[in-house]
Nucleic acid binder design. Structure first.
Lengths: 230, 230
DNA sequence: TTAACGTTAATCGTTGACAATATCTTAGTT
DNA sequence: AACTAAGATATTGTCAACGATTAACGTTAA
């Protein structure tokens, strides 16, 4: 597959974004979709050949992906999809606790009616997915839910920081278990969060979102059999 | 000046790090030291010539720096040192509030005796700098103080996230006023933080650190004549 | 004054080459 | 058969030169 195959207006894409940015986005997509496994080696020249370009843009994309934490670059050996350990996932959850509390507080103040409407739709869809025991679908919706929350804060720096962490957490998920279970409980927590947002109760929304992250982490630990004392 | 001029064991440096990493670090140093002004254009080929290299490593360093938020890359125009607006600095302070509260809580649990000793030394040095009205010196020590705090949390993800934000905040400082004043108050807040850490009182340390960030932001606003409602 | 045109300079991307390094293969030895 | 060492191979790191694309600027003409 070549990059030129992009469906919507490929010419404009190349005019606005450089090739290295397009390559970066494509590789990121491949990593996050699991198309490339964690730990896997990314061959510079074969990727270039696959995209129909030279090694230059691919190497530049690698450097950017390295800085964003998705790949690990080893001199004279190459580029590998990063493997996120349980310890590191745990550290990310620490951060998410703090950031999500902030998200809750801010979103309660800034969320628009439209955004809240979409949140409700996502809640219902997640219930449907839970009923059908469709874990993959739930996971996708869950990502969208939290991404919409952070996006509604209208704090650009918070948004990109948050998304970076979510991507790395996703690397951890890809590593082993697809999901951490407890879908029903999880969505009940989601509803409490949305309720607080509707009431524009920043304090409660922040606490609810933080508590949700704490419990998500517990579910992760349980799934991995990690001692709570770790 | 060529990169080969590095003082300590240049050969080993090149053997371990690729040239693009060295270039990245050097450009980052130039940006953060103010050697290159915010908004300034970074000429690809003249930088390459200056370092005595080809354009390849420089371009790769640019991509990494772009991802880290220190430069802005415009296709077909080039690379510019990012300019951080007051609005953006404000968003970063929002994040710092949340992160520093986390830092306070964690560091109270994890800080070693040695680390606390260094914190005390920094406190005293900052008092000295305040007495001498040496704002630049105070600022350096202040950076070291907060960096040591976050480093003492032993949470790698928190450390790199925090440092990234501090670097961008530094870009904002470079833009205009060197400092935000209120040195004496600031160091009194520092002492309260360290006291809570010594008592291993995580809750108080977190609150104190968060409060410190809130006040730092206020001092920044005051210096810029920004309305608190913004 | 404004619009069109051409020049210039920079980035973007390609290609081909070579060196340095890592990895795999193979032959030889114990 | 197992281990070792030398050599072959593959990959990354870096460079140099080239053409294409684009943005910026100055000039000219209406």
């Amino acid at each position: 597959m070549s990059l030129g195959d992009t469906r919507e207006n490929p010419l404009k894409l190349v005019r606005v974004n450089s090739l290295s940015v397009l390559v970066q986005e494509e590789i990121e997509r491949m990593i996050l979709s699991g198309e490339i496994a964690t730990g896997e080696w990314l061959n510079e020249s074969s990727l270039a050949q696959r995209f129909g370009l030279s090694r230059g843009p691919v190497r530049e994309a690698f450097r950017a992906l390295g800085e964003s934490g998705l790949v690990r670059i080893v001199k004279n050996q190459g580029v590998f999809v990063r493997e996120v350990s349980v310890v590191e996932a745990d550290q990310i959850y620490d951060l998410r606790e703090a950031l999500d509390e902030l998200v809750g507080r801010k979103v309660a103040a800034t969320a628009t009616r439209d955004q809240i409407k979409i949140l409700h739709e996502l809640l219902d869809e997640m219930d449907t997915a839970t009923g059908a025991n469709d874990v993959t679908r739930y996971h996708t919706l869950n990502l969208r839910f939290h991404d919409l929350l952070v996006e509604s804060t209208a704090n650009a720096k918070l948004i990109i920081t948050y998304r970076r962490l979510i991507k790395e957490l996703h690397l951890f998920r890809l590593r082993g278990l697809a999901q951490f279970g407890g879908l029903r409980n999880s969505n009940e927590e989601h509803r409490m969060i949305v309720k607080a947002i509707e009431l524009k109760d920043a304090e409660t929304a922040g606490r609810a979102l933080k508590a949700h992250v704490v419990k998500s982490r517990d579910r992760m630990h349980k799934a991995y059999g990690v001692n709570a004392a770790d």
